[in-house]
Each structure stands twice: as C-alpha cells, then as structure tokens.
Computed example of a mutant assay.
Amino acid sequence: MKKKHLDDDLTNLDKQNLRSRIIDSANQVKAKKRKNRILMVAASVVILVGISLFYQPKSEQAIESFVKTSTDIDVNKVDGVTLILGSGDNLNLDGENTTVKYSKSGEEVVLGSGKTVNQKSTKNEKALYNTILVPFGKRTDLKLSDGSMVWLNSGSKLVYPAVFNGNSREVYLEGEAIFEVSHNPQKPFKVLSANQEVEVLGTVFNVSSYKDDDLSFTVLKSGSVKINYSDKAVKGIKIKPGTFASYNAVSKEAKTKEVNINDYFSWRDGFLNFKKDNLKHIMTKLSRYYNVQIVIESEDLAAQTFSGNLDLKENVTKVIQLIGETSNFEFSSDNEKITIINSN
C-alpha cells in the first residue's frame, strides 16, 4: 500500500499557515537569544563601569580648596622668605639670594644658596602643593617645574603644585607677582586670586591682588590673556599688550585702559615708577616694599598726586625725602613708623 504524505492532505492555505507559524517560532527563539545576549553585555558594562569607578583615582583637590583649608599659612607670620613643602616642612631662605628652582619632576628643589632639597611631588596620584611666603620688605623669584618664571613682590603668597601633572597649570596668588609663562597650548596656565582668574598660554604679565586692596589688576606685557571675574555679573575680557585691566571689589566695576607697562614691572628691578598717583597709593607700596608703617596725617595730603621715578635701592627715608622735595610735606621717623605731615 502506498504511504500517504502529510502534504497530500494539506491544502495550499494550510501549508502557508504552517510555514508562517514555523517562521514566527524561529524568530521568537532568535529574539529571545538576542535579548539574553544584550542583557549579558549590559550587565558586563555595568560591572566594568562599577569597577572603573571604584578603582578610578580621586580627582586632584582643587587649589582653591587647599588655600581655604590652609588658613594658618599667613605671610604676615614669617620673618623671611619661607618655602613650605607638600610634606609640611618649612624652609627659611636666608641671605640676599632667595631664588627657588624646581626640577621638571618637582622632586628636586634648588634654593638660592645652592642647597638641593628632595621632596615627593605627588601622593596617591595627586599633586602636592607647595607654598612660598614673601613677607613685607622682601622679594624673591622662582622657577616652576614647567619652566615658568615668577617674581614675587613684598607681602605676597603663591600656592602651586610641585609638578603640573593634570590638563592645566593652576597657581593661586595673594599679593603681587610678575609671570613669564612657559608656552604650552595643551596645558593652559591660570593665575587664581580672590576676585579673578587669569588664563594664558604663554606670555608675560603682572597680577596684583592684595587682601587689603579694593583694586585687583592685571597688566599685560606680551602675549594674550583672558580674565574671568569671580563676580559673575561682570563679563570676562581678553586684553592685549599694554593694557591695564582692573576690578574694584567695592564698586563691583571692571575697567581697562592703556598704560606704560614699565610702571608696573619696574619693581622687579628695584625701581618704582608712578604717574599722577596719589600719595596714599605711593606710600602703601613703599610700606610693603620696605616693611615699615607709614602714616599720612592729612587726608588732603594723602589725596595729592605725584609723578616720578624712585630708586628703591635707597633707604626708605631717602626715598620719602625725594618725594617731599616736590611737595609741601615733612616727615618724622622712628624704628617702627614714619609719619608724614603738612609743612604749613
């Protein structure tokens, strides 16, 4: 007897329906396998992300946070130029030569006397911060690990990493300094202070931001800098060489003007240039430079303006005497204070 095939009893419609069910079933199986594979991959990604987050080194502590937590580091509490290493060790730089130079790794520090000090530049993959304090009456200069040069004026503090191992180079300034920044477009150089942030790639400029001054300013000698202010209501600016950019913390105003840049860089060479500056402003600078208290008894006299060039290699009484020759004031001095009075 001839065997009967299933196909013999199926109509064309039955065959078509059966074929559709077989295809749908196969597709469902494939979809389920694909979904399981996706879930497995997703789980693997989650695990990997969790592992990377767990083992990823913590980001470097912001330099502003370090400054805020180091309130005991006060420039007015040291007798001479003082370098504080990341370990907390204090190094006093005695003598005329107080220069500080860092190696590229930041682990070797050469002091002005020629002495070399070794330190760790990082801890747990985070850069360690160094601080240099320059009290009133002193000045110094240092070469950072990236080759940038900094000249610090009297009454200034600079906080900086021993080595710049991140995507930017950031230092924090309290006081006044001249910067000659080593060019590196891949690592912008930023000078942070209480009221402003100055960002550069490679240039020469002067920044002044003293605690007891209402006015913070930046003077650009060469290159280009961008200034952002902590007051977000004041728009950031980009200045060109020969420009004086200031911010007044009281009036909340930012201004720019063209100036003779030598007036703001001459202190590095031991001179003070001033043009139509009031006597109070001039005496404030001299007080910091020579570390002596100077009192002007008359407000009218304090508001008088003067122009000239002073050789700061002379002693302070000689310098004040030279200013007095162009005006009508006299002064008396003792070991701790100089008092300026009208001669009339």
Rank of each mutant, 00 (worst) to 15 (best):
Glu174Lys: 09
Ile340Asp: 01
Gly270Ile: 05
Lys226His: 01
Lys104Asp: 12
Ser20Tyr: 14
Lys115Leu: 06
Asn273Ser: 04
Gly308Cys: 05
Asp146Val: 11
Leu301Phe: 13
Ala162Ser: 12
Ser193Arg: 10
Ser246Tyr: 04
Asp231Thr: 03
Ser154Met: 07
Ile296Val: 05
Ser287Trp: 03
Ile132Val: 10
Ala127Cys: 06
Asn165Arg: 10
Thr317Pro: 11
Ser70Asp: 05
Ala303Glu: 13
His5Gln: 13
Leu272Asp: 01
Ala31Ile: 14
Val81Phe: 00
Glu125Lys: 14
Ser251Glu: 06
Gln293Ala: 11
Glu107Arg: 02
Val250Phe: 08
Val67Gln: 08
Gln56Thr: 12
Gly80Asp: 14
Asp212Ile: 04
Ser327Lys: 04
Asn118Met: 14
Gly175Gln: 06
Asp94Phe: 00
Ser216Asn: 11
Leu286Ile: 01
Pro135Cys: 03
Glu297Asn: 07
Lys138Phe: 15
Leu133Asp: 01
Leu85Ala: 02
Leu128His: 03
Leu91Thr: 04
Glu174Pro: 08
Ile294Ala: 00
Phe331Leu: 00
Asn184Asp: 14
Glu253Val: 11
Lys126Gln: 15
Asn315Leu: 09
Ile84Cys: 00
Phe306Asp: 04
Glu258Cys: 03
Ala43Leu: 13
Ser222Met: 03
Val163Pro: 05
Lys235Val: 12
Lys337Met: 07
Ile338His: 04
Met149Asp: 15
Glu336Cys: 03
Ile132Lys: 06
Glu325Cys: 13
Val110Tyr: 00
Lys187Ser: 14
Gly223Ser: 02
Val75Phe: 13
Gly175Thr: 07
Tyr247Ile: 11
Glu64Trp: 05
Ile239Arg: 02
Ser343Phe: 09
His5Tyr: 15
Glu325Asp: 11
Gly166Tyr: 06
Ser327Ala: 08
Lys157Leu: 07
Ile239Val: 00
Asn167Trp: 05
Phe306Trp: 03
Arg288His: 06
Val46Ser: 13
Ser113Lys: 08
Thr69Pro: 01
Asn309His: 08
Ala303Ser: 14
Val67Lys: 12
Pro188Lys: 01
Phe274Pro: 03
Ile73Lys: 09
Gln28Leu: 15
